[in-house]
Design a protein around this nucleic acid. Structure first.
Length: 146
DNA sequence: CTTCTGACA
DNA sequence: TGTCAGCA
């Protein structure tokens, strides 16, 4: 049986917009905001995957909950970081359980010191490898009167 | 179909 | 702020 890749873009923007009950312009806007990145054909037209449609429905839900588009972008980024960190966590746990015997808690000579340091480096780099998108720096919003 | 700009609540 | 209409 040929299983369908849920990440594979199949729907054109009009079909996708109808399926999620949004305007096509709105879908383009979400992509411009970085909330979505549907596939593109060689000609440059968007192809939305089933996962993209789920993402669009989640955007609608978050908007309905009162989260603005900027906040939704933060939610998605945090979800990705959470996913990556969880993955690294399970790998670290698995490796430590396999490589260490009770007597070998010797601090001087770890057989897998190199590999362990490598994983630790990856874990440490995770939050930063996403170039700092949301500085959260200026607390005062630049707002024009009227 | 694409990007871009402006208007409305 | 988010959505929609019109243009090229």
């Amino acid at each position: 049986m040929t299983q369908v890749d849920p990440d594979q873009g199949v729907y054109g923007i009009s079909v996708a917009a109808e399926l999620v009950e949004m305007g096509a312009q709105t879908l383009r806007q979400y992509e411009a905001r970085g909330l979505l990145e549907p596939d593109r054909t060689a000609g440059g037209t968007r192809r939305y995957s089933p996962n993209d449609l789920d993402r669009l429905r989640r955007i609608a839900g978050l908007l309905d909950a009162g989260v603005n588009l900027a906040g939704i972008g933060m939610v998605f980024d945090l979800e990705r970081q959470n996913h990556d960190l969880t993955e690294q966590n399970t790998r670290l746990r698995a490796m430590r359980g396999a490589a260490m015997t009770p007597d070998e808690s010797d601090t001087t000579n770890h057989a897998d010191a190199a590999g362990e340091a490598d994983l630790l480096d990856q874990a440490a780099d995770l939050p930063g490898d996403e170039d700092d998108d949301y500085p959260l720096g200026d607390p005062d919003p630049p707002q024009a009167p009227g």
